[in-house]
Design a protein around this nucleic acid. Structure first.
Lengths: 138, 138
DNA sequence: GTAGAATTGAAAATCATTTTCAAAAGCGAC
DNA sequence: GTCGCTTTTGAAAATGATTTTCAATTCTAC
């Protein structure tokens, strides 16, 4: 069985079956996945797995709970992945192998107070993803 | 990012009529616009203006020429705006009034060499938009 | 002017996502 | 258990931005 952070276990009890299935899959995968990928993977191993609609709804509630984050890579398809509950992170996405490296630090958070000072703008959220070629594909 | 030394005027001569119309509109607007907004605005002032398909094709070629950039705000709709040819910039997008402030400096470019050193990852592109509340809407 | 190439546009197709709505599952009261 | 009520589910239809198709129009070179 996959390891789960304690808070995940606590929340898990309150999740619908569909959400639990989706969460379990994301725990195993640990990489960016589209809703449709999640759906097919679940259906592959169990033909009575949640339907696509339920997967979308599960993802929506997991994101709202802060257990999962939604990532935009600019291709019109949302990707999802587990996060440390309530936190977020960004990626270096390799254009060759599509693997992504998690950044351990958020560039934007570091700059929020500078942005506040310079522009009088109070940051509440952001999108940041970096594309390029990873070490192995170089 | 790659610089594009061609002058806008020089390029303009080679643009299709549709592209010229779209470019002219973007010059007037100077704010983030969706393809459909551009289309309606053009049609409002001239009912024989390019159709929606042509607007999409015009935007595609203007982006390829480096005269226009496409911006992703995470709502599944692409926005377009003029840029200094071959350059790009990011925004502080106000969630209240939807106005956007151009950032004069790219946070990611500044970090490219650090990313290269730390992760062996060669950056080729990125998405970055910052959301929040602007000074006036505060 | 004419042939061949490029551009255009309306309608149809695509594709991720959302909505609808009726059936199934969960659940508390009795 | 079972009755009644709420929640969850899923298949199909709807949505909405974008892309494709393909025939008609416009350009361009000769």
């Amino acid at each position: 069985m996959a390891k789960q952070p304690q808070s995940t276990v606590a929340v898990n009890a309150r999740l619908t079956k569909g959400s639990q299935k989706v969460l379990q899959l994301l725990e195993k995968r640990n990489s960016l996945s589209t809703a449709q990928e999640i759906h097919s993977l679940l259906r592959n191993e169990d033909e009575s797995a949640p339907g696509l609609t339920t997967v979308y709804r599960a993802l929506e509630s997991l994101v709202a709970l802060g257990l999962v984050q939604s990532v935009e890579l600019g291709d019109g398809e949302k990707r999802f992945e587990l996060v440390t509950p309530g936190e977020h992170h960004h990626h270096l996405v390799c254009e060759r192998c599509r693997e992504s490296i998690h950044l351990d630090q958020c560039l934007v958070e570091d700059l929020e107070s500078a942005i506040k000072t310079k522009y009088g703008f109070a940051v509440t959220g952001h999108i940041l993803e970096i594309f390029g070629v990873c070490k192995r594909c170089k």
